[in-house]
Design a protein around this nucleic acid. Structure first.
Lengths: 216, 216
DNA sequence: CTGCACGCCGATCTTGACCTCCACGGTGGA
DNA sequence: TCCACCGTGGAGGTCAAGATCGGCGTGCAG
């Protein structure tokens, strides 16, 4: 039992060369990148600060010279990821005025986000720190904000009550989230754009038939 | 700072009277019930074995005389909850041959499950132990199994390829999961049956338009 | 050449949670 | 009424992981 990190039978990522020193700003960026990789691969609890430090090729004190604690580090990454998907969703909704295209564009955005190399979406959709209120608030905010923006469109174009519009919008977001995650886990039997288009079709067929649809 | 249990500013559940002894089978059931309450309220990591024992009105050794460890206890509860929703889903799908009714019945089942007093759905949909493979496997299995049963219906009635059917089915499951959770968090502004019916309508409108629908 | 500042590392402390050992009290039989 | 028995309870061990302190090497100003 030497200094070997937790033998999780994973350890697919060997540490960096542990070479020389580095400007402070650059080191911080590298630490963030390493932390993201470790958190994504192992989750919050299973990820040890030692793992992150090793992954970055530095020792633990250096990590604590850049971030006050584990939670702060996690929240920094989580905020980045949450802001990214919310902004992308907003842009997709604003990219057109045709609702069918809106659905398609938004669905594509979700699939792109989930398929992005870094896997940052796991921090949001598969977080294992939901008992922490700070985390819970941010995770919920992703679904809530996205749904709220979608609900505005639904309410405007259908005249449905607020609560119903919100619930429908949350359903569409849930459809995107869950299907995209399982599409990714499935191993790419369907091309990303085809999958997004398929689910966008499902969503659009579902939502278009509601009262006062004057889209054409 | 005496022996007070973790001051989580929660502690909404006072322990049981700590009274006399009890038949073994009954004690076990009570321990499971107490453990479920604590896990649901605090999550796996934040829940301490002391909390569960206190909640049941017994001391820690008794808890260990009934369950080998914390993880086993959690998995027992998780299995019960997973089996329940999968079985309910299967029954709902088999309850009729009309696909529109199938969608409605299945959606109602999801909402009933989420709305059930015990809150056991949190073990499945909001678990904070997804880094554990045993847990991950069970949680994923809920979505996968439900989706698989739904996909059979879709494939049979539409002639879509397997992968597309699975993805569509997963989308419907995700819609149900996420919308039901946020409906519950919303605080009952919409009645349960109305919410389920609304989302069932969305799902049915979405899915009914696919090729080779010979339902009438 | 020498002193200094800076970033880095090995080794350590502490906390907290899971998991067992010595005393107590109620129960059935002689 | 006395005694053996068994389940209960509080106090403690162990260990992993987050968080930290004295020393080292390098490069530069004087």
């Amino acid at each position: 039992m030497t200094a070997g990190s937790t033998d999780t039978s994973f350890d697919g990522a060997q540490p960096r060369p542990r070479g020389g020193r580095m400007p402070r700003r650059e080191r911080r960026a590298q630490l963030l990148e390493s932390a993201l990789e470790v958190f994504v691969a192992q989750g919050y609890h299973a990820a040890a600060m030692d793992d992150i430090a090793d992954r970055a090729g530095v020792s633990k004190p250096v990590l604590y010279q850049h971030f006050p604690g584990k939670l702060d580090l996690y929240l920094a990454l989580l905020d980045t990821s949450c802001d990214l998907i919310i902004d992308n969703c907003r842009e997709a909704l604003a990219s057109t005025t045709d609702n069918k295209d809106r659905v398609t564009a938004t669905m594509k955005v979700f699939y792109s986000y989930v398929a992005s190399e870094e896997g940052a979406f796991r921090l949001v959709f598969e977080s294992d720190l939901t008992s922490e209120p700070d985390v819970r608030e941010r995770v919920d905010r992703v679904t809530t904000e996205c749904a709220s923006m979608i609900a505005d469109v639904i309410r405007t174009d259908t005249g449905l009550p607020d609560e119903a519009s919100e619930l429908l919008a949350v359903s569409l977001v849930g459809m995107a989230q869950v299907s995209a995650r399982f599409w990714l886990a499935g191993g790419g039997e369907i091309k990303q754009d085809d999958a997004a288009a398929l689910i966008a079709g499902l969503a659009w067929r579902g939502i278009r038939g509601y009262p006062m649809t004057d889209d054409h």
